[in-house]
């Protein structure tokens, strides 16, 4: 199945990413990983999400990471600690999660709870908008989206606060003095 092949490719790219010490290569590999993710999302029928992931994950966030890399002029230092403790934590948490995943419904099981609860009502097209994702996003879950938009706005405001330069104010002050 194409989804499985793409998922394996994603796992391989992350394995390489874990071992990489060159940050530029890591950022480019993250872009590749995001494109693979976007492809998987298309295969999983999430076309809206795939569109966003391709534009954001592979486009904007790669540009931002490269920009930050340029500003930090950093290559990763040799690790001081041995990675055994984090590896133990990650592997043991992973084993727990895999144990939990056995109990989840099978992939593409129509009887799974996720397909029984609210989705049938969303698919009845009460607001007469064929794209159900848009209808749910803007109408059914309008409050949720308002909150998310506010979060995006707040993040933007935070970045302005962190990275703005106050030179013009200083100049005015000098002129005034």
């Amino acid at each position: 199945m194409i989804i499985d092949v793409l998922l394996i490719l994603m796992a391989i790219s992350v394995l390489i990413l874990m071992r990489l010490r060159n940050l530029f290569a890591a950022v480019v590999l993250l872009g590749i990983y995001s494109f693979l993710m976007a492809t998987v999302l298309v295969a999983l029928d999430a076309v809206d999400v795939a569109m966003t992931e391709a534009a954001v994950g592979a486009g904007v966030s790669t540009v931002l990471l490269l920009g930050a890399l340029l500003l930090c002029k950093s290559s990763e230092a040799k690790p001081v600690h041995k990675p055994w403790l984090p590896l133990t934590v990650a592997v043991s948490t992973g084993v727990l999660l895999v144990y939990g995943a056995w109990g989840l419904p099978d992939f593409s099981d129509p009887q799974a709870p996720i397909h029984q609860h609210v989705a049938p009502r969303y698919l009845q097209n009460e607001v007469d908008v064929p794209n159900v994702v848009t209808a749910v996003l803007a109408s059914f879950r309008g409050f949720d989206t308002l909150g998310e938009t506010t979060v995006v706005f707040t993040a933007g405001a935070g970045i302005i606060a962190l990275l703005r330069r106050r030179q013009r104010v200083d100049k005015d002050r000098k002129n005034g003095a």
Binding site: D48, T52, A55, V129, N131, T134, L137, A138
Partner: peptide, 15 residues
Amino acid sequence: HGDFGPGGGFQAGTI
């Protein structure tokens, strides 16, 4: 065209 095909504010904004 987000009402009829894949699309909407988040996608269009990022594109």
